[in-house]
Amino acid sequence: MYTEQNVAEHYDNAAFQFELERLEKHCPVEYAITCRYLDRYIPKEAVVVDIGSGAGHYAAFLAKRGCSIYLIDVSARLLDAARERLERAELGHRIRAVVQTSATDLGCLGNESCDAVLMLGPLYHLRELPARRQAVNEAHRVLKEGGILFAAGINRLAYLRDLFCENPKEGVKRQAFHEEYLQAGKLDPERAAPIGYAHLTTVEEFRSLLTERFEEQALVGTESFTTVWQAKLNELSADEREAWLDLVERTGATPEGLGHSDHFLFVGKKIEA
């Protein structure tokens, strides 16, 4: 049975080591493109709440630009890892607080207390629509007027692609489940152990969720055509990397780039009530 505690246990145990190295080793395109948008939309020295901070990669990137950071996650081990990452980089003084809580309950933060909110993980572990709406409402509440939201969703087709690649015979046995999945996007550890309990989305559904409270500034596929080959980026020189990243960014906002991508990145400005 799904609870947010299940998600915390998943990242405290089975997924912990992978999450420590995922962005740098396995998903460098996702990381680099997201950082480009963070750099573009979040001012230096902004107050940022990183909800679902994971191992602290994006928090460290923003702290280096002078931002002060609230680290928030349901996983105690990942919060410790994020704090340690910033402290090793001599950025510990940029941490405002470290709080173990859900994206649906930001009672630790006051109204209009932050310049930017990052939700680069929580929305694809909140399986029910009311919970996702609550998380979006909480982000809206804590943002100042004109504040910026960064939110990530996972492409619903990514699960089917990976299943076809890794175990197509098993996939044939799941046809009844696939009918439900294509409608609701819900996964569980039995069928998708690497991600555990999750909700994967479509472009239309993701946009609809977020534009209720935020004016869309960008909606892009962070990997575009690189998807499962993005680790190749680590084999390139700095100039080669930037040339390919330019192409990824150029194509990521197209329907084709969004369709290829594993992750959708939404950038939105707070709409005043």
Rank of each mutant, 00 (worst) to 15 (best):
E87F: 04
E87N: 04
E87C: 09
E87V: 09
E87R: 14
R88M: 09
R88E: 13
R88S: 10
R88N: 11
R88I: 03
A89Y: 02
A89R: 05
E90I: 01
L91Y: 11
G92T: 12
H93I: 11
H93A: 12
H93Q: 15
R94E: 06
R94M: 15
R94V: 14
I95F: 09
R96A: 08
A97F: 14
A97M: 10
A97D: 15
V98P: 12
V98T: 15
V98K: 07
V98W: 05
V99T: 09
V99R: 11
V99L: 10
Q100D: 08
Q100G: 05
Q100F: 03
T101I: 07
S102I: 02
T104V: 13
T104H: 14
T104N: 13
T104G: 08
L106K: 01
L106W: 00
L106N: 02
G107R: 00
G107L: 01
C108L: 07
C108N: 12
L109H: 08
L109Q: 08
G110Q: 09
G110C: 09
G110Y: 07
G110R: 11
G110H: 14
N111Q: 13
N111A: 03
E112G: 09
E112H: 08
S113R: 04
S113I: 13
S113N: 06
S113A: 10
S113M: 04
C114M: 11
C114V: 14
C114H: 06
D115N: 07
D115F: 00
D115H: 11
A116L: 01
V117H: 00
L118G: 02
M119T: 07
M119E: 14
M119C: 07
M119R: 06
L120I: 11
G121S: 13
G121F: 03
